[in-house]
Simulated scan of single mutants.
Amino acid sequence: MSEYEYVVVFVTVPNRDVGVEIAKSLVNNKLAACVNVIDGLRSIYYWEGRVEEDNEALLIIKSRKDKLNDLVIFIRERHPYKVPEIIALPIIGGFDGYLRWIDEALRRE
């Protein structure tokens, strides 16, 4: 592994189109090396005193910890939810070739 710490970030969005737009922007701005957009989620959650239920899509974002603050700000500026789910989990290990690829993708010209 490199000197960087890697993260996977989960972000729910209201639909696939919003997810694809955010995903492309993250990759184009070198805040993410890769974003998977998974459509067809059913989310059940507590909001403003009630249990709610909605269809959503999920973004699975691969990045580095040193990009995380900028990534969160970037998503908040573009996300339609008042309080979007943006949760980062550490990557504790993985294939070195893939982790090196994350580094390369985030520092490309």
Rank of each mutant, 00 (worst) to 15 (best):
E3Y: 08
Y6L: 09
V8F: 07
V8T: 04
V9W: 07
F10I: 02
V13R: 00
V18C: 01
V18N: 00
G19T: 00
V20T: 15
L26Y: 01
V27C: 01
V27M: 13
N28P: 14
N29F: 10
N29M: 10
K30Q: 04
L31M: 11
A32L: 09
A32G: 03
N36R: 14
D39E: 12
G40H: 09
G40M: 07
G40Y: 07
L41W: 12
R42G: 15
R42N: 11
R42L: 11
E48G: 06
G49E: 04
R50Y: 07
E53I: 04
E53T: 09
A57W: 07
A57C: 11
L58M: 13
R64V: 01
R64C: 05
K65A: 10
D66V: 01
N69E: 15
L71F: 13
I73S: 05
I75F: 02
I75V: 14
E77T: 07
E77K: 00
R78A: 08
R78P: 15
P80S: 04
P80A: 05
Y81S: 08
Y81D: 00
Y81G: 03
V83S: 12
E85I: 11
L89R: 02
L89P: 02
P90M: 06
I91T: 12
I91W: 09
G93Y: 03
F95G: 03
F95V: 06
F95M: 14
F95N: 11
D96T: 12
D96H: 01
G97W: 11
L99Q: 12
R100D: 04
W101M: 10
E104D: 08
R107Y: 06
E109C: 13
